[in-house]
Amino acid sequence: MLRFLGFRLLRAAITIVMVVSFAFVVLRLSGDPAQIIMGADAPPEAIAAFRRAWGLEEPLWLQYLRYFGAIFSGDLGRSMRDGREAIALVAERIPATLALTIPALLIKLGIGIPAGITAALHRNSLVDRAVMVLAVAGFTVPSFVLGLLLVLVFAVQLGWLPSGGQESWRHAILPIVTMGVGGAAVLARFTRSAMLEVLGQPYIRTASAKGVPWRAVVWGHALPNAAIPTVTIIGFMVGSLIAGAVVVESVFSWPGVGRLLVVAVANRDLAVVQCILLLVAATMVAANLVVDLLYGALDPRLRQRAG
């Protein structure tokens, strides 16, 4: 078990380093922060001074080493725009993002899983078809289209809800629904196929053949097995609690981490972008780690291999 954990942690660390390195290189090759932040018509001396101040005139590898040195001493750098600590800038946006993504996650779980199970249990029925049509629709329509559609109907036409901003809880409804619907669709499809796969297994027939009532077959024999593949996708959803709202936050002008990321990338505000990516990678990796542990808890076959 310890070796398993150690191995996973090492892999997690490597993943994070790779994400951050990749971002580091791409950001610096795709535009000059000094030009962008100072403006195209800034005097060359000012730009040169900016470069010197932020260490941008040094060779890339030296910047890279310096950056990682700083990370390991806990310094994630400062925003080039207002000089504040990047970590503080990001941290103050996290609650706003979670205010959207956590309720959205609850919607995904609360609707997606029961819908998928119901569809599988009544395969080819009207219910199944309805769920599948909705799921395919929810899955194929991109979230910005769905978001705009909801704005059009509920904000513009009906005037029931605001179209953007963060003044009250009512502002959160449309973005939460936008995210929740898409995720619920994905989860419903996934749960349905996991459940169908399990229901076709010989051990389900065995349970029925020994006289277990159908409800108990579903709850006691099918669901614990269907949970195993479903946990993967739920883990992925938990992992994107921080990063998953970029599009929706932009559509609804919601001041969360996602919008901060968009603005920071546009500005080549290196420290802020990297700080966010680091955070995103860390959440993803943490969620993956939890999924791996859950696998072990759910599936005795994996427990043994891991131990």
Partner: peptide, 10 residues
């Protein structure tokens, strides 16, 4: 097939 006729998680 006895191996797949028993529930793997119980």
């Amino acid at each position: 097939d006895p191996a797949s006729s028993l529930n793997p998680v119980h």
